[in-house]
Computed example of a mutant assay.
Amino acid sequence: MSALAPFAVTQKWPAKDPSVIQLYSFPTPNGVKASIMLEETGLPYEAHKVTLADADVKSPEFLSLNPNNKIPAIIDPNGPDGEPIGLFESGAILLYLAEKTGKFIGQNASDKHHITQWLMFQMGGIGPMLGQLGFFHKFAGREIEDPRPRERYVAEAKRLLNVLNTQLEGQDWVAGDYSIADMAIAPWLRGLDFYEAKDLVGWDEHANVVAYLDRFLERPAVQKGLVTPARD
């Protein structure tokens, strides 16, 4: 019996090769964290497109893997102690894959904790705040007459960019060597283009951040991960 047989999600998204990691995702800032990490590590995997439509993320099959109905999620048929494991939450997936491979998590325990704090900076700050900025600037929130919500997230986005710009002074990557922290942070910075908000937050005033994103986007694994799974 396949190691994936107990996972109902495989009924809606069948595995072609059940011996490799199964990725259930869509190319959003959170979704591409997992695909970029998989490309960077060279782990064999199979990508399944799970759209943001209710028919996918709220389907019983997907909810059986992630009850929070968000992408990405993975199944590793070769999990800890030889048992398969399913995981959701992009930060948890990054940490799991880093520990599985011993890559992009630093050279020692101190490095790991330093990297993890910047991963949490993205999870608790960069991601939620830029996401809300996008909502109030580009999407339905722009119809709200009260300017305070939009002003709040514009101000917070600028503050976070300043924090990041300062951290990047004199170094290429946010936590020393290239790591899962960068794979988490940089896709959200790229998302400012999609939100049409770069001018709004003074993007060009943050020279270290601008150069940082350019370096990130030059990586071949990043270029592949940004379009995996394909939208079409």
Rank of each mutant, 00 (worst) to 15 (best):
P84L: 07
G42C: 07
F139T: 02
G42S: 10
L4V: 12
H114T: 14
I74D: 12
L189P: 02
F194N: 06
P77Y: 06
E169M: 11
K224S: 13
Q107V: 15
D56G: 09
F135C: 08
L63G: 01
P29K: 03
R231Y: 10
E61R: 07
L87T: 04
L38F: 12
R215L: 03
P84I: 01
R231V: 15
G31M: 09
L4G: 09
Q107T: 14
A155K: 15
V50N: 05
G79A: 11
P80V: 09
P77E: 08
L87K: 10
A3W: 01
D17A: 07
K58M: 13
K100V: 02
L97C: 05
K33N: 09
A109L: 14
G141D: 05
D54Q: 12
A5F: 09
I115K: 01
K33D: 14
F121P: 06
L133Y: 12
N108T: 01
I144N: 10
I85Q: 07
F194A: 14
P14A: 03
K198P: 00
G202A: 04
E39I: 01
N30P: 11
K158Q: 15
G82A: 04
N162D: 14
K33I: 05
I71H: 04
Y153E: 06
E99P: 06
V154K: 06
Q167N: 07
L168Q: 09
V50M: 08
F62V: 09
P18G: 12
Y96T: 10
L87E: 03
K12V: 06
E145M: 12
A5I: 12
L52H: 02
I144A: 00
H114G: 06
P44F: 00
S179E: 09
D146C: 15
P80K: 13
R150H: 13
G102E: 08
A98V: 05
E205Y: 03
D182W: 02
K103P: 09
H113I: 13
Y24S: 04
K70S: 08
N78H: 12
S35C: 09
I93T: 13
V201Q: 12
A155E: 08
G86P: 06
K112S: 11
G134E: 03
M183G: 02
I185M: 03
G82S: 08
G79P: 07
M120L: 15
A197G: 01
Y195F: 15
M123E: 05
A186W: 09
P229S: 08
V222N: 10
L97T: 00
F139K: 07
N208D: 02
L133I: 11
G106D: 05
A5K: 14
E145T: 14
T101K: 04
D56Q: 06
E89C: 08
A5Y: 02
I115P: 08
G134H: 12
A47R: 04
L65Y: 06
K100E: 10
V227L: 04
H206L: 00
N208W: 01
Q22M: 10
D204Q: 15
R148S: 15
L161E: 13
R215E: 06
A140H: 10
E218F: 01
P6Q: 03
L161H: 07
L226T: 08
R159V: 03
K58Q: 07
L133T: 04
E39S: 11
M123R: 03
M37F: 04
L130C: 00
V222E: 11
A184H: 09
Q122R: 05
A109T: 13
K158G: 02
F136T: 03
H114N: 12
M37W: 01
W118Q: 08
W118S: 08
N162F: 00
L97F: 10
K138W: 00
R159Y: 02
